[in-house]
């Protein structure tokens, strides 16, 4: 069964390069809630893959299916080339995961928490356990707090201990479900720096987030979810480029600028403070600038602005980001 590449339901055709691949993956919870709806996802090896979507869009549900915690209602998922949840015993030792925040034994020290999670992996040799735990603590900067009871940890420390558990073994894939949720800016920076470091070592990182700028800062690839459906996926650059660049003029004479631009065929004009933006017209921008100056519009700056991922998202959903819930 394994290793045979069936063309069947798999849409990606990325084959060997994909670390995660799903085909029409669907989950309807017992309450009737359709949480993930025919998801076709392809996560290339070596990418830092942002899984973006507002709260309730099905990110955690997808991750639970990928990790074998819940059974898909229909469809299929492959992780590291093998079907989940069936191949969990073979796949999961090569995957580190942080799902819906850290969960620890409060009555155990940080070190003992890691010893327990390491002991739960039947492929982790007991003889090297202490060394693995020590290295993981070092990696997330918790060596000096390793003896403290986990219940005394701050949220940021708990998150880092959770990450340490995900890093006990050398992993091919790291799955991080909203890893910066609830952290202060300093904690967020620490986690992002860790993620960048891991990615630089060649680990594929699958990172879910409801924060656009987080994805834009650390990810090479992204997929956008809304209400259980995949809206788009690709490289972050492609996605941003898919939203068209806009014309931007800064001027104190915004009313005149709008009139002149409209006369020259610029649509969808919006004014914020001293900035006028609009769709790029099919005319030469130099002529447009000259027309503004001729009409006595005092232009401070004139040019095109690159679209952001946020623009792409707004273009995709037709609405702002924090709407669905």
């Amino acid at each position: 069964m394994e290793g045979r590449s069936k063309p069947g339901p798999w849409p990606g055709a990325v084959g060997e390069g994909a670390v995660i691949e799903t085909a029409a993956l669907t989950k309807r919870y017992r309450g009737g809630q359709l949480a993930v709806d025919r998801l076709d996802l392809v996560v290339p090896r070596g990418s830092v893959f942002g899984f973006l979507g507002p709260n309730g869009s099905g990110k955690t549900t997808t991750i639970r299916m990928l990790m074998g915690l819940i059974e898909p209602t229909s469809g299929a998922a492959r992780v590291l080339g093998q079907e989940m949840p069936r191949a969990g015993r073979r796949v999961l030792p090569r995957v580190g995961a942080l799902i819906e925040g850290p969960a620890l034994y409060g009555f155990l020290s940080g070190r003992d928490n890691l010893l327990r999670f390491d002991a739960a992996d039947p492929t982790a040799a007991p003889r090297t356990r202490a060394a693995r735990v020590g290295a993981a603590l070092e990696r997330v900067g918790l060596t000096s707090a390793a003896g403290k009871k986990a219940r005394a940890y701050s949220l940021g420390m708990k998150q880092r201990l959770g990450l340490a558990a995900a890093l006990l073994r050398p992993r091919e894939l790291l799955v991080l479900d909203e890893p910066t949720n609830g952290l202060d800016p300093q904690g967020m920076r620490e986690i992002r720096a860790l993620v960048r470091g891991l990615a630089a070592e060649g680990t594929t990182v699958f990172l879910s987030s409801h924060l656009l700028d987080e994805i834009e800062q650390v990810c090479t690839h992204a997929a956008v979810m809304a209400q259980g459906r995949l809206l788009t996926q690709g490289t972050v650059r492609e996605l941003a480029a898919s939203a068209r660049a806009r014309l931007a003029v800064t001027t104190p004479d915004t009313a005149d600028a709008v009139r002149v631009l409209k006369e020259h065929g610029v649509h969808d004009l919006t004014v914020t403070d001293d900035r006028v933006t609009g769709e790029l017209p099919p005319v030469d921008l130099a002529d447009l600038n000259a027309a503004l100056v001729r009409a006595d519009v005092r232009v401070r700056s004139f040019g095109t602005e690159r679209a952001s991922l946020e623009d792409a998202f707004v273009a995709l959903t037709g609405e702002g980001f924090d709407v669905a819930g």
């Binding site: 990790m67 969990g88 739960a120 992996d121 558990a165």
Partner: peptide
């Protein structure tokens, strides 16, 4: 209830073994 179950399962402890 502590949430540690999901981390034991992805370790992967194995449900029968656990």
């Amino acid at each position: 209830s502590a949430g540690t179950l999901r981390y034991l399962l992805v370790a992967p402890a194995g449900r029968t073994r656990l």
